[in-house]
Design a protein around this nucleic acid. Structure first.
Length: 560
DNA sequence: ACTGACTTGGCATGCCTCCC
DNA sequence: GGGAGGCATGCCAAGTCAGT
C-alpha cells in the first residue's frame, strides 16, 4: 500500500480522510475501506501525526472551507490486535477512534491500555451544518486524561475560541438550559462521556453553568443513555433536525455498537465501567460494611435513636428507657440488651481535646523529654504509654508525609478542638454518616488490667485534683438540671477541664448509682481506692475514654 | 520503627423520582 | 423528554490501631 500513489497523495493532502474519501479510495484501489483506514492510521503514526479531534476538525474546516459532508459518519474503534495485524509490523499499540466522514477524527492511543476487544462503531447520521459545536463529534478518549500520549510533529492549525458559535454572553441565567448550553454539553458529551476538569472549565466558560450543573448533566445523560429504549443508541435532537433522514442536517445519532465491556469513554480507572443496561436490584443493605453485627437487627432509625441516647448516657434511666421504647418501638429487653452490648464496645479514641493537646505538643517537639511526657499525660489525662506510642506513630507518619494535620497546627491555623472549625474530629460537630459503621474494630485481646508502675503514678498524680474540681462542678450542674443537656456539654468540658467522654461518663455513673440505689455522688475512687492503688489510674471513668490500645500497649510495653 | 488492616469523612457517581 | 432533588453506593485519602 505504501507504494500506491493515490493513497500517498491523498495522505499528503490531508492525513485524516473522510468516509467519502475512504470509500472513494477503496473503489479506486483494490483495498478495503478497513485496510485504507488502517493504512492512514499507520501513516499518521509513522509520521508522528496525532491531532486532537478539535484540531482535525479545525484543519479540515480551514482546508475545505467549512464544507460539510453529507455522508453518515462512523466512528470506529479498531481493536489493537486487528490493527496490528493489518498494520503489518507496526506495534500493536495503536488504536484508532475515527470518525470517517466529515470531521475525519482519529485518536491514537499509545500504550494500548484501552482494552477494546471488538469494534465500537459510532454512527453520526448527519450534522446540522449551522451548528459548529455539533460538528465537533469526536471520540476522544482521555484515559486518566493527561496520559494521552502525543507524538505530534505536525501541528494543525490552531483553534481560535472566537470560532465557536457560542459565547458566554449568549446565555442568560435561566433555570432551564438553553439550546446553546445544551448544544455545548452534548458536543462535549459526544467527545467524552466523562467530563474532565479541563472540559468542565471550558464548558463553564462557554455555558455559564456551574461545575455541579455540568457534572450532573453528564451523569444524568449517561444514565439516561443507558436506560433509553436502546441502550446503545443515543439520539440528540437538534433544533433544525429533519428526522428520518440520513442527510447531513438530520438529527445526530450516535450508535455505539460494542459487545465488550469497555466503556465508551475511557475514564479514569476509579470509575466503574459503564454497565449494560440493567435495573439495579433493590438489595440495599443498611449495613453494607457488615459491622456492628450485633445490632443489625435494628433499623437505622432505631440505631440512631439508641446511639444518641447512648452518647448521653451509657445507662439509660427509666424515663429514657420509656422514651426509647416509644421512639424505637423496641421492647425494654431489646433496649437493655443493646445497651449492654454497646457498653462492651470500647471507646477507642482519645477525645478531640486530648488529641489537640498532643498535636500541639507534637508541633513543639517530636521528641518530648520524659518530663514533657509526664506533663502531657497530666494535661491530657491520657496514659503516658499511650502518649509515647502516639508520638511514635506520629513521628513515623510525619516522616512519610502522612501527617496532614501537622502543618495546620504548625501554622497555628487551629481554632481549638471545641470550635469545630480547626479539627474535623471535633466531637460536637462531627458528622455521622448515614450508614452506621460503628466502632467495631475487633479486639483480639482483652483489656488487661494495669500493673503497678512508676508511670501510672505519674498518670494518676495530678488529674485527680482537677477531676475533683470538675466533679464538683458537675455535681452542681446535676443538682440543678438532673440530667446532662448536650448543649451544655462544651461548657462543662471547658469548666471542668475534663473530656467529653469523662463528663458523659460521670453523668452515666451518677445515673447508674441512682438506679442501684446508691449515693450518686460517692467518689468511685473512694470505693475503688484499693484497686486503684494496685491497678494504676484505670478508674471506671477512665475506662470509657481511654483508648484501649493504650491500655494494651501500656502493659505490653510496660511503662518504658 | 514499621506494616497492614481498619475506620471515617468527603466526594463522585449512579439511580430513582417528581415536576414541568 | 429534560431538569432537578435527593438518596445510595463506591472509592479514596487520612488517620488510627494492633501486631511484629
Amino acid at each position: 500500500m505504501d507504494t500506491n500513489p493515490l493513497l500517498g497523495t491523498t495522505y499528503k493532502k490531508f492525513p485524516y480522510p473522510s468516509m467519502a474519501e475512504i470509500s472513494s479510495l477503496a473503489a479506486q484501489t483494490q483495498f478495503t475501506e478497513e485496510q485504507i483506514k488502517v493504512w492512514f492510521s499507520a501513516q499518521r503514526l509513522k509520521h508522528g501525526v496525532s491531532w486532537t479531534p478539535e484540531e482535525v476538525e479545525e484543519a479540515r474546516r480551514k482546508q475545505f472551507n467549512g464544507t460539510v459532508h453529507t455522508v453518515p459518519q462512523t466512528i470506529t474503534v479498531i481493536p489493537a490486535h486487528q490493527l496490528s495485524a493489518a498494520a503489518n509490523g507496526l506495534q500493536s499499540i495503536l488504536q484508532t477512534c475515527q470518525i470517517v466522514g466529515q470531521p475525519g477524527l482519529v485518536f491514537t492511543q499509545v500504550g494500548g491500555n484501552l482494552p477494546v476487544t471488538s469494534p465500537i462503531t459510532l454512527t453520526v447520521a448527519g450534522l446540522p451544518s449551522q451548528s459548529q459545536s455539533s460538528s465537533r463529534v469526536s471520540c476522544q478518549p482521555t484515559p486518566t486524561n493527561s496520559e494521552m500520549k502525543r507524538a505530534t510533529t505536525v501541528q494543525p492549525p490552531s483553534l481560535s475560541p472566537q470560532n465557536s458559535a457560542l459565547s458566554a454572553d449568549t446565555f442568560s441565567m435561566r433555570p432551564k438550559k438553553s439550546k446553546e448550553q445544551l448544544a455545548e454539553l452534548k458536543a462535549s458529551y459526544l467527545k467524552n462521556h466523562f467530563v474532565t476538569d479541563a472540559e468542565i472549565a471550558r464548558l463553564m466558560k462557554l455555558t455559564n453553568l456551574t461545575k455541579g450543573e455540568i457534572k450532573k448533566w453528564f451523569s444524568d445523560t449517561r444514565y439516561n443513555q443507558r436506560n433509553s429504549k436502546n441502550s446503545h443508541v443515543i439520539v440528540f435532537h437538534d433544533g433544525g433536525g429533519r428526522s428520518g433522514s440520513c442527510s447531513s442536517t438530520a438529527n445526530t445519532t450516535i450508535v455505539i455498537d460494542s459487545s465488550d465491556e469497555t466503556p465508551t469513554s475511557p475514564h479514569p480507572p476509579r470509575t466503574p465501567p459503564v454497565k449494560e443496561k440493567e435495573t439495579r436490584p433493590k438489595t440495599w443493605n443498611p449495613f453494607p460494611d457488615f459491622t456492628l453485627q450485633k445490632f443489625k437487627e435494628k433499623t437505622p432509625e432505631q440505631l440512631v435513636v439508641l446511639e444518641e441516647s447512648f452518647e448521653k448516657s451509657a445507662t439509660p434511666s427509666d424515663e429514657e428507657l420509656s422514651r426509647l421504647r416509644t421512639e424505637t418501638k423496641l421492647t425494654r429487653r431489646e433496649i437493655d440488651a443493646w445497651f449492654t452490648e454497646r457498653r462492651k464496645m470500647p471507646s477507642v479514641r482519645p477525645s478531640p481535646e486530648q488529641l489537640h493537646i498532643l498535636k500541639s505538643a507534637f508541633v513543639r517537639t517530636q521528641w518530648p523529654t520524659p518530663e514533657e511526657y509526664d506533663q502531657l499525660a497530666e494535661e491530657s489525662n491520657l496514659p503516658r504509654s499511650y502518649i509515647v506510642s502516639w508520638f511514635g506513630d506520629s513521628r513515623y507518619s510525619w516522616k512519610n508525609g502522612n501527617l496532614k494535620w501537622f502543618f495546620q497546627y504548625q501554622s497555628g491555623n487551629i481554632e481549638g478542638p471545641n470550635s469545630g472549625g480547626g479539627s474535623k474530629l471535633g466531637s460536637g460537630s462531627r458528622k455521622r454518616r448515614g450508614r452506621n459503621r460503628g466502632w467495631g474494630r475487633s479486639r483480639t485481646r482483652k483489656q488487661p488490667r494495669r500493673s503497678t508502675s512508676s508511670s501510672t503514678d505519674v498518670d494518676r498524680s495530678t488529674p485527680s485534683k482537677k477531676f475533683k474540681t470538675g466533679k464538683e462542678i458537675l455535681k452542681e450542674y446535676y443538682l440543678k438540671h438532673h440530667f446532662l443537656n448536650e448543649q451544655d456539654l462544651d461548657e462543662l468540658v471547658t469548666k471542668t477541664n475534663m473530656s467529653y467522654e469523662q463528663v458523659r461518663e460521670w453523668f452515666a455513673e451518677v445515673q447508674r448509682r441512682l438506679d442501684m440505689g446508691l449515693d450518686p455522688f460517692q467518689e468511685p475512687d473512694e470505693e475503688d481506692d484499693e484497686e486503684d492503688e494496685d491497678d494504676g489510674d484505670d478508674t471506671d471513668d477512665s475506662e470509657v475514654w481511654e483508648p484501649s490500645r493504650s491500655v494494651k500497649k501500656s502493659l505490653s510495653v510496660s511503662e518504658d
